[in-house]
Design a binder for these strands. Structure first.
Lengths: 344, 344
DNA sequence: TTGTATGCGTTATCAA
DNA sequence: TTGATAACGCATACAA
């Protein structure tokens, strides 16, 4: 089962010219007669010639491939980011190699290894929850590899980030709840080693303070996995006194978990308890009551990060003279889960 | 910004041996002294040597990369399939190049082109909604390219498929609705050029017949886009007489659309109208009432398809002697949207 | 046990 | 206007 792709040599042999002539004719080099160009192109078509990208890569020491490292494809947010990445990469003539870490550091490292072996031209990275040490990234940066981080970004000097404004997203969400008259607002927080979690907590806290409310540490609870939020919420409803009257989730799964727990405990939403999520997953408008959420522009994050990466690769911009953080705005989408008819 | 990767030559120069010796030592060839092996490996580590996969590809005419062509990453089902693909490919030492067609035929073809240029070892394909002619695939098959189709599969002789049992999935869903006492069951069908849609329609129809009910063509309505189902359902509720008392969606988005339309029209679910979806998206258990759905094993589909493809590539199996269809079972997950308390 | 030469497909350099 | 040659990094047939 030899998959015979025809090569420049085949064309050359058919036409009794040298392979360099063929190569030049195919690329419309000056100094090749029109007659030859015509013949070569005709034969190329006839033989169904396709340039061998592998050979080209070897020759040019460039693979025209970028590597994407993300935690999990099945997260709606990441899949929209991938769409953005794919779109731009495709348009600019690059391939995308994808690996997911499943939130494992070991996997993250080995992915980098295989990608390096494959001579990829640059990395697009959102690191795993397990990653707390960034040595494997900073050493790459030191060697000059182009890397753009998105969403989950490390604290390395000189690293380029594309992120959303988590702080203001959380601030707006919390402010909205306050303005709706909720006053005992719980924040179901994300893993504290992620900067995005920290920023969301900060936005939550500052909104409270700006409206003259106290930050109660008992009201900030870390909810690591998807299923956990529900249990945590049930527990809080039973133990906290006074009972919380709002939940702001670090992500939509957490918010939905809280919503289910509240419903199960007999609370009416949004009358008695208000809920806001983060990410604006597809299902937000499909649940009952529909879930208010902070929309993150996943597609745009992917597209922007890729544009920057390719600019770096093609040396259209230089890492040192580049502003190292691009911040995209979030948008609070207010739905039913957080809009009170009668306020307290 | 030269990214100096060290090569076999570098190791050879350092140690004053030939590069072939280094090559052999690194792969533990017999006939190389242990002493040399030791030295070479030591130096390789010291120079942080990493084999150049591109050079290897050129040499072996094998890229150890497979190409995946899917409609859209953001569909939950496809993203679980990707996970399965990724998992197996990674474990067996292959890279995954991904492109989405966004349901466009032109994109599908150009993706194939770039992948061929990149000398990928095989294809994993679920084709676009626009694809009705399969010439671009069958010509590849004729040339001996390994291809495994999944989910959306073409009717080409000899093509290998990994699919779920759409027929029995739809049959079970419909049967379930019937047994719950629903009798005017609408099927929100998928694009009729897709075999999966046809199979689901067939399952729906046969279940009706097996229970002595008539198939009413007005009750089978094609719902192409996600938003459409809601409008269609509203329309049907207003125009069909007698009014339908159940909706079986070709996918979960359609089912949710139907659910929202029913609620908006004042119907109680599941009392008055029962609803079942297809795919078991994450949100099924999060909406209210929770949505019964036919679960498709996306991860297993991806994993299985990849295993077969790699077996083909590595010639562990031969296309001709291979059963050309692997069918994975679906599972009906009964939730609240279709379980009547009092039956008619 | 090790080295030399060749080729995978392409293009840049130099020569004609 | 075209051709010969070398090189990208690696593996292997053949020679020593």
């Amino acid at each position: 089962m030899k998959l015979e792709q025809s090569t420049i040599k085949d064309i050359a042999r058919e036409l009794n010219v040298s392979s360099s002539t063929v190569s030049r004719a195919l690329k419309d080099y000056p100094g090749i007669s029109d007659e030859t160009k015509r013949k070569v192109k005709e034969m190329a078509k006839k033989l169904n010639y396709r340039p061998n990208a592998i050979a080209l890569s070897l020759r040019k020491s460039r693979s025209f491939t970028i590597g994407v490292i993300i935690p999990e494809v099945v997260h709606f947010f990441f899949s929209t980011v991938i769409s953005g990445i794919e779109e731009v990469a495709f348009a600019r003539g690059y391939n995308v190699i994808l690996t997911q870490t499943n939130e494992k550091l070991a996997r993250e490292k080995s992915s980098i290894d295989t990608m390096l072996s494959n001579q990829i031209d640059g990395f697009l990275v959102s690191f795993s929850k397990e990653t707390t040490d960034f040595e494997h990234f900073s050493s790459l940066l030191d060697k000059g590899y182009p890397i753009v981080f998105f969403d989950r970004v490390p604290d390395i000097p000189g690293a380029i980030h594309v992120i959303v404004d988590d702080y203001s997203g959380a601030y707006e969400a919390t402010k909205h709840l306050i303005l709706q008259g909720y006053s005992r607002i719980v924040h179901l927080a994300g893993p504290s080693n992620l900067k995005i979690s920290q920023e969301r907590i900060r936005g939550y806290e500052n909104a409270l303070r700006d409206f003259g409310m106290e930050v109660n540490p008992d009201y900030i609870v870390e909810s690591r996995t998807d299923g956990e939020a529900q249990k945590i919420t049930s527990h809080l409803l039973n133990t906290l006194s006074p009972v919380p009257d709002a939940f702001f989730g670090n992500n939509d799964m957490a918010a939905v978990g809280a919503m289910m727990a509240c419903k199960a405990a007999g609370y009416r939403i949004p009358d008695q308890i208000g809920i806001v999520g983060f990410s604006n997953w597809q299902f937000c408008s499909m649940i009952d009551p529909s879930l208010s959420s902070v929309a993150q522009p996943g597609f745009r994050i992917g597209a922007k990060a890729t544009d920057i990466l390719l600019d770096l690769i093609e040396q259209k911009i230089n890492r040192n003279e580049f502003e190292n953080s691009v911040v995209l705005e979030t948008e609070l989408l207010v739905r039913k889960s957080s809009v009170r008819l009668e306020k307290n």
